[in-house]
Amino acid sequence: MSDRTPSPLPKYKRVLVKLSGEVLLGSHQYGIDSTVVEAIAQKIKEVVNMGVEVAVVVGGGNIFRGISASARGMDRATADSIGMLATVMNALSLQDALERLGVFTRVLTAISMQEIAEPYIRRRAIRHLEKGRVVILAAGIGNPYFTTDTTAALRALEVKAEAILKATKVDGVYDTDPTVNPYAKKFDSLTYLEVLQKELKAMDDTAVSLCMDNHIPIIVFNLSDPDNIRKAILGQKIGTIITQGE
Score class of each variant (00 low, 15 high):
residue 157 L to G: 05
residue 172 G to V: 07
residue 242 I to C: 05
residue 40 I to D: 01
residue 22 E to D: 06
residue 64 F to D: 04
residue 149 D to E: 04
residue 116 I to H: 09
residue 51 G to Q: 01
residue 170 V to M: 11
residue 45 K to D: 02
residue 216 I to Q: 12
residue 67 I to V: 13
residue 85 L to E: 01
residue 196 L to V: 00
residue 216 I to L: 11
residue 3 D to Y: 08
residue 226 P to D: 05
residue 66 G to N: 05
residue 139 A to G: 15
residue 156 A to L: 11
residue 71 A to N: 13
residue 39 A to G: 08
residue 152 A to F: 10
residue 48 V to S: 14
residue 159 V to I: 15
residue 123 R to T: 07
residue 21 G to D: 13
residue 203 M to E: 09
residue 193 L to Y: 11
residue 208 V to A: 05
residue 148 T to K: 03
residue 178 P to S: 01
residue 100 R to V: 04
residue 34 S to M: 12
residue 32 I to W: 02
residue 228 N to Q: 14
residue 206 T to W: 00
residue 177 D to T: 05
residue 244 Q to L: 13
residue 161 A to Y: 07
residue 36 V to H: 04
residue 95 Q to P: 13
residue 136 I to E: 09
residue 182 P to V: 03
residue 190 L to G: 01
residue 137 L to N: 03
residue 199 E to V: 09
residue 181 N to L: 14
residue 167 A to P: 12
residue 208 V to L: 05
residue 194 E to G: 02
residue 173 V to T: 11
residue 222 N to C: 13
residue 56 V to N: 04
residue 205 D to T: 01
residue 164 I to W: 06
residue 122 R to T: 15
residue 211 C to M: 02
residue 107 V to E: 02
residue 213 D to C: 07
residue 97 A to W: 03
residue 164 I to N: 07
residue 246 E to F: 06
residue 7 S to F: 06
residue 90 N to A: 10
residue 206 T to G: 01
residue 239 G to E: 10
residue 128 H to N: 10
residue 188 D to C: 03
residue 131 K to P: 00
residue 183 Y to S: 14
residue 86 A to F: 04
residue 89 M to I: 13
residue 202 A to Y: 10
residue 93 S to K: 10
residue 31 G to M: 08
residue 199 E to Q: 12
residue 86 A to V: 06
residue 241 I to R: 15
residue 126 I to G: 01
residue 151 T to L: 07
residue 79 A to Y: 00
residue 103 V to E: 01
residue 103 V to M: 06
residue 142 G to L: 10
residue 207 A to K: 00
residue 169 K to I: 12
residue 57 V to F: 03
residue 185 K to E: 15
residue 177 D to S: 06
residue 218 I to M: 00
residue 207 A to P: 02
residue 38 E to K: 10
residue 84 M to K: 12
residue 56 V to Y: 03
residue 143 N to Y: 11
residue 135 V to P: 01
residue 168 T to I: 02
residue 179 T to N: 15
residue 182 P to G: 04
residue 63 I to L: 10
residue 60 G to S: 07
residue 2 S to W: 09
residue 154 L to F: 06
residue 149 D to V: 09
residue 20 S to E: 08
residue 148 T to G: 02
residue 200 L to W: 03
residue 143 N to F: 09
residue 219 I to A: 12
residue 169 K to L: 12
residue 236 Q to Y: 13
residue 42 Q to G: 08
residue 107 V to C: 02
residue 168 T to D: 04
residue 233 I to M: 13
residue 72 R to Y: 13
residue 109 T to S: 15
residue 3 D to I: 04
residue 158 E to C: 12
residue 174 Y to I: 09
residue 67 I to T: 15
residue 127 R to K: 07
residue 107 V to I: 09
residue 72 R to K: 15
residue 26 G to C: 12
residue 243 T to Q: 09
residue 192 Y to W: 01
residue 163 A to Y: 08
residue 53 E to T: 04
residue 210 L to F: 15
residue 84 M to Q: 13
residue 116 I to C: 11
residue 227 D to P: 00
